[in-house]
Design a protein around this nucleic acid. Sequence first.
DNA 1: CGGATAGTTAAGCATGTGCCTAACCAACGC
DNA 2: GCGTTGGTTAGGCACATGCTTAACTATCCG
Lengths: 105, 105
Amino acid sequence: MDQVFKALSDGTRREMIERLTQGPASVGELAQPLSMSLPAVMQHLQVLEASGLVRSEKAGRVRTCHLEPDGLRMAEDWLGGQRTGWEHRLDRLGGHLGSDEGKRS
Amino acid sequence: MDQVFKALSDGTRREMIERLTQGPASVGELAQPLSMSLPAVMQHLQVLEASGLVRSEKAGRVRTCHLEPDGLRMAEDWLGGQRTGWEHRLDRLGGHLGSDEGKRS
DNA sequence: CGGATAGTTAAGCATGTGCCTAACCAACGC
DNA sequence: GCGTTGGTTAGGCACATGCTTAACTATCCG
């Protein structure tokens, strides 16, 4: 979990993820819009893989990376859990707080 | 956004957040279960406040901290957006497999 | 007032992070 | 084979992070 949020805490890595939502990409393709050396991209990629957010396989001399959505979901679940826990507490705490009610996802 | 995920990327800070879902707490109360000096907790608190996830006010000599759920929701939304974007791509791809004539980005 | 309580500031240290360059390896294409 | 392309490894540098202790301020309580 640490690793997931740490991976997400860098803007460059989030850009890479956004790129990967549009479909798989090679390391070079990931690097192209990033104005950054290839080794730097590699390191970001390693962080993303260590976190479980991204997986990649090498075919020939090109490594193809794709998203692993379970990782995103895990982070999303933790966040949602905290938020709903908080909302639940407010419920228990007397329901007439009024204005922000009935909204749930 | 960077700051939100950076704040969440540390286990100690996530513990503090979990604590705060159960209701407001003073700095000392936050520090108690953390086996860590008070200044260290202060620094974590500053990170959390800078990220917008937590807010705190000082009354007398005690500072009371509480969660700011909009921050959590923002992070959750980004994650959800990526995931649903990815799922949507899979949808488009499911109709006619094998033809990849869409966007080449 | 004077002491205990709650927090804050300052300085310093060890380690981690993000980037670079230079060199290296492994497919291709001819 | 030989050069080119795509990726990888190694080493290093600048700065950020997470923590510490020591000293300081500000409130409360008797």
